[in-house]
Amino acid sequence: METQEVEFIAENTLIEIVPKFNHAVIHLITGDFGPFIAGMPVSVPLWAALNFRQRQKCRILPPAWMTVEELEKIKQEEKDSQVFTRIPSEHYREITQLLLENATPDIPRADEVHTLVKDIWDMRLAKLRSSTDVFIKSDEVHAQVDHLTMMELNTVRPLLLTSLRFVSRLKKNPEEQNSTINDSSTSFSVSMQVSDSEPMQ
């Protein structure tokens, strides 16, 4: 999947805005939103919010996790833990980028937020990189990847999945093509009864 497509999916998340206009309920295919009363916060999908913002018809309220304090807490958790921690939003990177592009004045301390999100992203990717290496070197067919966001998975997807398939093809012995069992490459049985947060093993 391309980055733009992951962003497309992210644009469907709901976000709070404070409209500067009055309007009745709007009935979209994907749901009913409103009524819009100037000064009262209302929840709309992100793509609609950005559209309004570009026309100067509203002010966007950043989501609860997009404050410097929250992000610093998340960053600290990520640094302390060896595994991937839970983050408040599945699309944190895309939402941050979109809001900072289009609604910078609405977000307090935008630069710091940007830096923090970038740091969190870099940390998680570094962990992901070492996990993938370990996974390929081991012979396992299955790994649990809790708490990874779509964007992060998308970054490693082509290379990792192609490599895994390549390795399993290399292991396939041509004369054993007549059997009905599928090839197993595990040398020890894997039952990943893992607890809530564990990296790929």
Binding site: E2, T3, Q4, E7, Q97, L100, E101, N154, T155, V156, R157, P158, L159, T162, S163, F166
Partner: peptide
């Protein structure tokens, strides 16, 4: 071939990031 696949994703990500 595999390297190019990985690189393509990275370039895509960079382009998206620098879009603004």
């Amino acid at each position: 071939a595999m390297f190019f696949e990985g690189q393509k994703v990275q370039l895509d990500l960079q382009r998206w990031r620098d879009r603004s």
